[in-house]
Design a protein around this nucleic acid. Structure first.
Lengths: 125, 125
DNA sequence: CTAGTTGCAAAGCATTTGCCTGTGG
DNA sequence: CCACAGGCAAATGCTTTGCAACTAG
């Protein structure tokens, strides 16, 4: 099982304080404040381990490095919004449904991903 | 303007014969049959140039290298399907709509992307 | 001709791995 | 104690770039 280390705690804290999906670099920045010696390899290893443990869920966006969010936030089916201006990613709840109607004949759908692009409230003004 | 070379022609042919979004590697494989000396750098440079010329449109999928498709195919609004088994990507026409209802207050939507995951007809059997 | 294109190999980035030291339990 | 975790640096994989040779128009 996973050991509870200073680094791991700092990474978990970063996610709890952010409340939105974070990239490995964002995690490194945030957690470095708490554990200055934190290395990038540790962040990547911890993120992967935490995904396997079910603590984090990966958020893969088009044309960008993967991000991660706390698994409990991911439990409710949701999608993502990426701000054109500040590049941050936010959760979007709800889902249009009816996507399986779009499938070509013979195709079966296992899952889907929806990403919205635009401006967040802070950047819209 | 772009010059018409053997390599460029081979790349264009690859897209026309495929009829679906191709990754740079898939392009290299397909076009190498026609121009064996084709190098990867040439493929990347040609793809970028063709996107700028408006001949190709980029298709960015979560967690994967970019793919490209012919711009005329991209002109009609559509989305993509990625097969879990063969990793190929297909176009999916249609769109559920109503996505702007999902936006949090104050957010504005410029565009959206939908990706379906599952099995294509060839792999479903 | 001659500017744009190609091919090769080296350079860049983000991410992963090797290896040895540190440490949680 | 000692196996797992961390830190550093080297390795990897995909994409880009530098540069000399090539070729379309």
């Amino acid at each position: 099982m996973a050991r509870i280390t200073r680094q791991r705690t700092a990474i978990t804290n970063a996610f709890e304080q952010a409340g939105r999906p974070l990239s490995p670099l964002e995690v490194l920045d945030a957690a470095s404040a708490e554990v200055p010696s934190l290395g990038q390899a540790t962040v990547y290893r911890a993120l992967r381990a935490m995904v396997e443990e079910g603590v984090l869920a990966p958020v893969e966006l088009p044309g960008e490095p993967d991000r991660y969010e706390l698994a409990d936030a991911a439990a409710r089916h949701h999608h993502h919004f990426r701000c054109d201006s500040c590049d941050r990613v936010f959760d979007v709840h709800g889902c249009p449904g009816g996507l399986s109607n779009l499938l070509p004949p013979g195709f079966t759908m296992r899952d889907h991903e929806i990403v919205l692009f635009g401006r967040c409230d802070a950047c819209a003004s």
